[in-house]
């Protein structure tokens, strides 16, 4: 049962990417827009308004930069193309859709599901650690952004906004790396303890 559930989730994610990201559905703006609405409603229903606001805050910089560069490239007629804005709008909708479909899909897989999957110990350990790290680190990006937003260190510096953004990404990466190390150590210690007590 669990195998069907997990396989179904990954198949669903694969189908989405196969059709709506790399397939004919990519440029179907109406369908993409409808999917975006459905995913936002599903996320709000499952995780609340705060989670949806967080998702919006996460994807907004990327969406904004996609649209910004699309306008610039269209104005420049870069590579002789006149469809930069249309393409950027597509990307601006496909990106949050992709983010949400992966988020909603992976959220449905619980630790109990991972334990019940017919996996060998090594891959099961990797899946447990991955899920634990992602759950722990997902709120950290916003915390790092908050700290960087109020930090005065880059005032009066050239490309201050870019430096802040890069520093936020680096800080998040360090957090994920350290949390992965910590979770691995914790997992291994607990496993050793349980084996010793058997």
């Amino acid at each position: 049962m669990v195998t069907f559930k997990v396989t179904g989730i990954f198949a669903g994610i694969g189908l989405f990417f196969g059709f709506f990201v790399f397939g004919p559905g990519y440029s179907a703006l109406a369908a993409q827009g409808l999917l975006l609405g459905i995913f936002f409603i599903a996320n709000t229903w499952r995780n609340g308004w705060a989670s949806t606001r967080t998702v919006c805050a996460t994807v907004l910089p990327f969406v904004a930069s996609l649209l910004f560069f699309g306008v610039i490239f269209d104005w420049m007629l870069l590579l002789g193309r006149e469809d930069w804005i249309t393409d950027s709008v597509c990307k601006a909708i496909v990106f949050p859709n992709s983010f949400l479909v992966v988020k909603l899909g992976l959220e449905r897989i619980s630790f109990q599901d991972i334990l019940r999957l017919p996996l060998s110990p090594g891959p099961r350990r990797v899946c447990i650690i991955f899920k634990a790290v992602m759950e722990r680190c997902t709120p950290l990006l916003h915390r790092h952004r908050f700290f960087m937003d109020i930090s005065p260190h880059f005032h009066h510096q050239r490309a201050a906004l870019l430096k802040k953004l890069c520093a936020t990404i680096v800080a998040t990466y360090i957090s994920i790396y350290r949390q992965t190390e910590k979770t691995q150590t914790l997992f291994d210690h607990r496993q050793q303890y349980m084996r010793k007590n058997r």
Binding site: F147, M148, H153, A167, T168, A171, I174, R178
Partner: peptide, 8 residues
Amino acid sequence: QVNTMRAT
């Protein structure tokens, strides 16, 4: 926050 400090 230490990671933000290090990156900064």
